[in-house]
Amino acid sequence: MQRMVNNPDYAVEDMLKGFVKVHSDILVGTENPRVLKYKDAPVKGKVGIVTGGGSGHKPAFAGYIGRNMVDAVAVGEIFSSPTAKAFFDAFKEADSGAGIACLYGNYAGDNMNVKMAMKMAEMEDITVKTVVANDDVASAPKDQPEKRRGVAGEIFMWKVGGAKAALGGTLDEVIAVAQKAIDNTKSVGVGLAPCTIPSVGSPNFQIEPGTMEVGIGHHGEPGVKVMPLGTADEIAEIMTDIILPDQPFMSGDEVVVLVSGLGATPVMEQYIVYNRVEEILAEKGIKVHRSYVGNYFTSLEMMGVTLSILKLDEELKELVDMEVDTMGLKQFKY
């Protein structure tokens, strides 16, 4: 295993120390070593935006802490949910009295820990409402949305929810628009090579050289099919073929496109994939309003990409376009 860690069991702790030092202009550590928060949180009168999840997905989740996005994040072990206590402490760090929108992904551990954290919050009179992201179309059929997991499309949910909260939206308004964002987002991943949790020491799933796993999850959950490795254009076509009919995205729609590397795919190749995605959308009369390409939501050193597409309406467009200043996403108006 060619990796740079000290004691692999403490990779998350060691990473957090460095992370807080580098990004001290945006975020700070808290009493709970597994909770980071926006330096100005709780922001007076504003709904607090909280998320959390397993580590290994940088910049997610803590990388989206910052102005107009996320207020506090609960940090878990690699690929493993944060504790209920960490979610609860994140609620407390972000709460200004206007309530907490906990926007997280649909995974068994996160569901249980958030549920327990909400019970703790109830006892301290902190109002918490949730949106559970389920944008990964390959993880379950369309008629079982409750089984679909959350992947890179969660970024749109935080962006939109965070912007709404910053504009003074009430908790119910923030929840409603974050839900709308994720309901209008569809994602799919393609994996070319597996990843290794440092403390495990070897990959826990295999992708044979010369093949690719279509529909792979953010933790190597197997996808819908294994195919011979295609060209970047072919991969773009396979992914759009899965996503577009699922929403469906149609002629006349305006969308935001996110191509995120999973960790080991060169950013250069991500642009090659994006180029074909844009062509396909243009051929179908779908207009790209804004697009993002880069390592926005990774899975350690997995090779591959996820494609996420968000269908806009006027409200979502305004919120997506709003300024944001986080480590993972910076957007300014000039």
Partner: peptide, 12 residues
């Protein structure tokens, strides 16, 4: 388990 480990097994 509940306050330091998390995952699915922490709460269970």
């Amino acid at each position: 388990l509940m306050t330091e480990i998390g995952g699915s097994m922490g709460p269970l």
